[in-house]
Amino acid sequence: MLDTGPVLPWMTAWLNLQQQLSQTAVGATAGRGGEPGSDAMRRLMEFGGDYAGVAAEFWSQIQSKNPDFAGMQAGLAERYQKLFMPVVVPAATPAETGAAFIRWQQAAERFGRHTSAIAIDACERLIAALSATGADAPPITSLRELHELWIECGEAAFTAAAHREEFADAQAELLAAFVELRAGQLRR
C-alpha cells in the first residue's frame, strides 16, 4: 500500500489500479513455463507503488513556489534503498537463533550500510541535478521526466559504489551468511 502522507488527487486512480491488478491476478497461474501475465502484473503493481511513491515524495514541492528539497532526503533515500537491496536474500524468521543467525544479521547490517550510503549519494545527486542550471539542465515539466532523473541519479550512485571491492565483499558475505542460515535450516 502506498504511504503518501497527505491525500493526493490521484489516489483514486492508484487504488483503482491496485484493485484491478489484484482481481486480475487472482487465480492466474504463476511461475516458470506457466502464465507469465500474473508475475508481470505483480511486478507492475510493485512498480506502480514505487512510481506513485516517488511522486508523492515530491508532491508538496510541486505545489510550492519555493521548493526546498533538503527536507525530502530521508523519504527519498528510503525509497532508493529499497531498490538496492537484493530481493533473493530473505529476512530470517524470528525463530532463528545461533551463530548462523548472528552472522546473517551482521552481514545484513553491513550490506545495509552500503545501500544506505548509496541511497544518500543518489539523493544528493538528484537534489544537485534538480538545482542545476544551464543548457544541460532543462526544466522538468512532467512527472515522467522527474522519474527519469530519479532513475539516472540512482543508477549513477549505484554504479559508483557497486564496482568497489568493499561492496562486493559485503554482498558476498551476505550471500555466504544466507547459505549458512539455509544449511542450518536443512540440518533441522
Binding site: L8, P9, W10, A13, I62, Q63, P67, T133, P139, S142
Partner: peptide, 20 residues
C-alpha cells in the same frame, strides 16, 4: 532556483493517466 517546473494540476492529470 530549481529545474522543477511542474504544474500541480497537470501533474495530477499526468499521474491519473499514467495509472489508468
Amino acid at each position: 532556483m530549481t529545474r522543477l517546473a511542474l504544474d500541480p494540476v497537470r501533474a495530477s492529470a499526468e499521474m491519473d493517466e499514467f495509472l489508468q
